[in-house]
Amino acid sequence: MLQSIVHVCLAGLSQGMFIWLVASGLTLIFGVLGVLNFAHGSFYMLGAYFCFMVLRALGENFWWGLLLGPVCVAAVGYLVERFFLRRVYGLELPYQLLLTFAFVLLFDDLVKIFWGAASIGTPPAPGLADSIMILGRRFPSYNLFVIAVGPLLALGLWGLLEKTWAGRIIRASSSDREMASALGVKVPTLFTAVFVFGTWLGALGGGLAVPYLGLLTPGMGEQIIIEAFVVAVIGGLGSLKGAFLGALVIGLLSAFGTRFLPTFDMFLTFILMAGVLLWRPQGFFGEAR
């Protein structure tokens, strides 16, 4: 029983960390730019495909792919923000949603044109291809790596936002855009920077997913973006702390649900979201608006 519980916990934690990686970029972009970016799941997908492309080109080494792939996607994010998204900041929410949704369709088709519609099998990560024994059952070492990366990234983000000059500017602009602008912050440049960084986070999630899922499929961003949205809503849209906690809760809930309450496993996540929306609509750490 102990073996079973520990392994379900580990499965839930690694699941949660992926959702966190995607949700962090999503919620950061919403917090600062006020844009609900539907295309964020596509950046996750592109992160995986670019990672694959780089690792193919550089001798099947996943680590090069993880290092360079998300950077390429961040460049794509730059183009999207600079030439498209920037034009709709002043418009109503539906225009932003439509535009980002258009990018979802566009990226799905581009992936199909460049890499084909069939799923592509991918190699494991060098050095972490093995499993280690935990209480008599094997657990992939790569997943332990993912479980470690999640909190490290959270810590890094926290440090960046709370302890650096750039972080203070970001926080200032997100709480009052006009005042920040009046005080000399170049808000458009800041928005581009934050969007590019958020894109990189989503793409990093995709890159990390390559050895974990073992295959790439067009449309692979669709499932994760729904979970990331749920997590962002539960945690409070715009709150990184909330997204981290929300991802942990959803990951563990879904793992325990699958193992111990299999009839209701899909249900649990949405029950939680409905509950949060009813009794704490701003989410765990969201500010009431």
Partner: peptide
């Protein structure tokens, strides 16, 4: 749309 089968695999191995 399941991408993580680890919990399901745990159920079977148990």
């Amino acid at each position: 749309g399941t991408t993580d089968f680890r919990s399901h695999i745990n159920t079977i191995m148990d």
